[in-house]
């Protein structure tokens, strides 16, 4: 992780400034939420809002520090990011989330599997989908039927193991 120290006059790191803004926002939300809490400290004198307030303030201070570091160009250089594979994985996770209770574990997780494989360079999507659903179904059988883990069932699972979806 050696940072190239030679380019001393780097321009302010805009992405790092965005990180600082995010930190400040998170800290601010915590502070505001803490202010809403009644002083319930009781005998301890430390209420439910005390610690969050301190943490929130610390986050805001860290945001200021981050701004300073960003202006100095103190952040490590980042390799170029490829957005397409990242989007494939996000789409896969989102699809699994949406499909899980509708289509059951195997199909939803099969989609995630296929999209992730696609993100890592597997071009044949139908093949990946087939492999993913088959693998997920095998996993579903082992963990839900044999090892009693509760995994959502859908049309595919009910076809082989007729049980009402909970």
């Amino acid at each position: 992780m050696s940072v190239k120290q030679h380019e001393t006059q780097r321009r302010p790191d805009r992405a790092a400034l965005a990180v600082a803004a995010g930190l400040a926002l998170f800290g601010g939300v915590i502070v505001v939420d803490a202010a809403r809490l009644a002083d319930f400290g009781g005998y301890s004198g430390v209420g439910p809002g005390t610690v969050p307030r301190m943490v929130g303030i610390a986050l805001i201070l860290l945001a200021v520090w981050t701004v300073a570091a960003a202006l100095r160009g103190d952040f490590p250089e980042r390799p170029r990011q490829q957005p397409v594979p990242v989007l494939w994985i996000i789409a896969g996770l989102a699809a699994q989330l949406v499909l899980l209770n509708v289509a059951g574990f195997s199909i939803a997780t099969g989609v995630l599997f296929a999209f992730t494989a696609r993100a890592f360079g597997q071009r044949n999507l139908p093949l990946a989908l087939g492999v993913g659903i088959a693998l997920s179904f095998a996993v579903w059988m082992v963990f839900s039927q044999l090892l009693l883990l509760n995994l959502p069932a859908g049309p595919l699972e009910n076809l082989f193991f007729g049980r009402p979806a909970p």
Partner: peptide, 25 residues
């Protein structure tokens, strides 16, 4: 491609098995 697809399969399997809510996902 298969390795990472498998990792995400098992990672989400654990989360779903522990608490089958889409919120957790």
């Amino acid at each position: 491609p298969w390795l990472y697809a498998g990792i995400l399969l098992f990672a989400t399997l654990g989360t779903i098995g522990a608490n089958p809510s889409t919120f957790e996902l």
